[in-house]
Design a binder for these strands. Structure first.
Lengths: 191, 191
DNA sequence: CCGAATTATTTTAAGCTTAAAATATCTGCG
DNA sequence: CGCAGATATTTTAAGCTTAAAATAATTCGG
């Protein structure tokens, strides 16, 4: 564990206010050092896990993470989802979903049909092949995540869930001022 | 806070062994439920912050996150870095760096020159314009991160650092068995 | 019923990203 | 020296991603 420097950050901050105190003594130039280190660590961990999962999905199932994510959404909605539903649930752009669905249809893993009652929409769902393929992947995926976090105790996991929840609320509040903090939030698809 | 379901996960796991116990009573089918929820939350938080930063960098400085990251590396190495150095520090592919540098050179923010003593390599460094531009961005970036984590106490941050460090070790061990856990690790560039 | 505003989706243009193959150069060994 | 293997970088092919503009269909108020 070390952090080695990084984070796109420099010591350049500390504007106005805290002028001539040396780095040790600096009172409150507010350079957000601790927060930057936290962000860096969060990012590193997430990237590490994400690329591991990505690489295993590619190597063992020849599938990309976004495709896995999309299939995961469909698996939970046997009746099918519209492209808009997928876009919202996966938290990605509509155009992105258009392309993903296109490619999955070509692979025979999902199918599109006109949505009854709204000629603008299409319903997307897993084909039998898509469903069975997804089940195998989901099983392996669960095991991989279990392995990656294997050294954490149950208490560590609880603590992390609580603290990350707090961080999420903080970030959401800062990112989107029009939100009453205690609403029913969504997490994006996969991993 | 809720997690809403998600995670690319289903209850399909629990193979063999735990056969007919209902979901409440299930003893140890090992479906890694807690770990999956943790991963989902980690991913959501990181994505949330990352897209906020990305959007602000684009909106206020008309720069992409990868470009900001690359410039951040150069800012810390006034003597310049080779493309290989950049690739390793940013933890991205070599081909990726080639393209990023190309575009930054076109924008006049960085410059390339042959590396003395090795005709295969090139040294990349910030131009004066790149350097001053980066300083403004870095300052704003620090403030944004500070805002996004504003609701966390100092203790929360400490706790998170410690737990994420533990998670990082766990993930690294699982991802790359050839590693003695206590080495000097790097965090990638930024966010 | 009509048209304005909204919603669903696609298209476009640009950039990011990777793995793998291709180049070019360097290094060390015999 | 001379070449085999290692390194540094670029190229290629494919896919992901987004914002913004363009289409198409629906809804709603009058």
């Amino acid at each position: 564990m070390d952090e080695s420097g990084n984070g796109g950050m420099t010591e350049s901050g500390a504007d106005a206010a805290a002028i001539l105190l040396d780095a040790e003594t600096r009172v409150h130039g507010d350079d957000h050092r601790a927060e930057l280190r936290l962000w860096l660590r969060l990012l590193t961990l997430t990237n590490l896990i994400e690329s591991e999962i990505r690489s295993r999905l590619r190597g063992e199932f020849d599938v990309t993470l976004p495709r896995f994510d999309l299939m995961a959404q469909l698996e939970k909605a046997p009746e099918g989802l519209t492209l808009g539903d997928l876009s919202r649930r996966m938290m990605v752009s509509a155009g992105n979903v258009t392309g993903l669905v296109e490619r999955l249809v070509q692979d025979g893993l999902v199918e599109r049909r006109p949505a009854p009652g709204d000629r603008r929409s299409a319903l997307v769902s897993l084909t039998p092949e898509g469903r069975s393929g997804f089940e195998a992947m989901a099983h392996a995926h669960g095991d991989w995540i279990g392995d990656l976090f294997a050294d954490l105790s149950d208490a560590d996991i609880d603590d992390l869930m609580r603290l990350l929840g707090r961080a999420k609320t903080s970030a959401r509040t800062a990112a989107d001022p029009t939100r009453t903090t205690t609403s029913t939030d969504k997490e994006p698809s996969n991993g």
